[in-house]
Simulated scan of single mutants.
Amino acid sequence: MTSSTFSREELAEAFGRFEATVDRAAQTRDWDPWVDQYSDDILYIEHAAGTMRGREQVRPWIWKTMESFPGSYMTSFPSLWHVIDESTGRIICELDNPMRDPGDGTIISATNLSILTYAGDGKWKRQEDVYNPLRFVSATVKWCRKAEELGTLPDEAAEWMAKYGGRK
C-alpha cells in the first residue's frame, strides 16, 4: 500500500469535480474534459478493453466507446455510492450507466465499480473499472428488445443486436 498525502477533504472535493465533469461530458457528449482530468501518465485498466497508458491512449478509446452504440445511448454515469480511502488516495465507487428511455419511460442500466487513485492538483493517475461485461450485454439486449417492441429501435442498435444479441 502506498501512503497518501491528500486529506479526506481534498479527495472528496476532487471526486465531486470528477462527478461534475463526467456529468457535463454525458450531457454535452464532449469527452475531452473527462479525459483531461487524468494525469498525462494515467494508467487506465478497463477489464474488457485492456490497459491504457497515458491520456492519449484513453482519449480515442473513450470517444469511440461513448459515440458508438451502446455507449452512445448511455445518458449519465452517476455514482450510487463511494468510499474515500485516505491511506491510498483512492475513491472506490459504483457507477450507474443508464440508457436512454426506449419510449415508454423504462430505465435500463448496468453498473460498474471504479477505483480512482488521486494524483493531486485535480488529476487522477489511475482508474480501474471492474464489472461483468455480460451484465452490460444483457442490459443492452433488454433495451434493444424493449425498443424493438415499441418500434423505436434505431438502425445502429439493430446492427448491434444482429452481431451480439443472439439473433440471426
Rank of each mutant, 00 (worst) to 15 (best):
Q127T: 08
T21P: 07
R59M: 01
W61A: 04
N132S: 07
I84A: 07
G16C: 08
S109H: 06
D85H: 06
E9R: 15
A157G: 06
A139W: 06
D96A: 11
F18M: 06
I84D: 08
I92C: 13
L113M: 14
R126G: 01
W63Q: 06
N112W: 09
S87V: 14
I91H: 05
Y44T: 01
Y164R: 14
R59G: 00
D101H: 00
Y164M: 14
C144A: 13
G120D: 05
S68Q: 10
T28N: 08
D41G: 01
R145W: 15
M1F: 05
N97P: 03
E46R: 13
M66P: 00
E13C: 02
Y118I: 02
K64T: 12
M66A: 05
W34S: 04
A48M: 14
Y118K: 06
S76F: 04
R17I: 10
T106F: 04
D30H: 02
F15M: 02
I62N: 04
K125M: 11
R53Q: 14
V83M: 09
G165C: 07
E9S: 12
A26C: 13
A25Q: 02
F18H: 15
Y131A: 06
T2I: 10
C93V: 15
V35N: 02
R17W: 09
E56T: 03
A119I: 03
F69K: 03
W160K: 10
R24Y: 00
D36H: 09
M52P: 01
A48V: 15
L150P: 01
D101R: 00
A158V: 05
G89L: 04
S79C: 09
E10W: 10
D40G: 03
G71D: 13
N97G: 02
P78G: 07
W63V: 07
L95E: 14
P98G: 05
M161P: 15
S4V: 09
P133I: 03
S138G: 12
R100K: 07
N112P: 04
K142N: 10
A162H: 06
A49E: 11
S7H: 09
K142Y: 11
D23Q: 12
Q37W: 14
A157P: 10
A139D: 09
T106G: 08
T88N: 06
P98Y: 07
E13S: 09
Y44R: 13
G122L: 09
S138T: 11
R55D: 06
G54I: 07
D40E: 15
F6S: 02
T111E: 13
W143K: 08
F136S: 11
V58K: 11
F15G: 00
L113G: 06
G16M: 07
S109K: 03
Q127L: 12
G105S: 11
T140V: 11
A12H: 13
R100W: 05
G105R: 05
L150V: 05
S72T: 12
R90Y: 01
E19G: 07
E159C: 02
G166T: 09
F18R: 03
F18G: 02
W31T: 00
E46C: 05
E9L: 14
R8A: 06
D104M: 14
D155P: 06
T140N: 13
I45L: 11
K123C: 01
T111D: 15
P78W: 01
S7V: 11
E148C: 03
L113K: 10
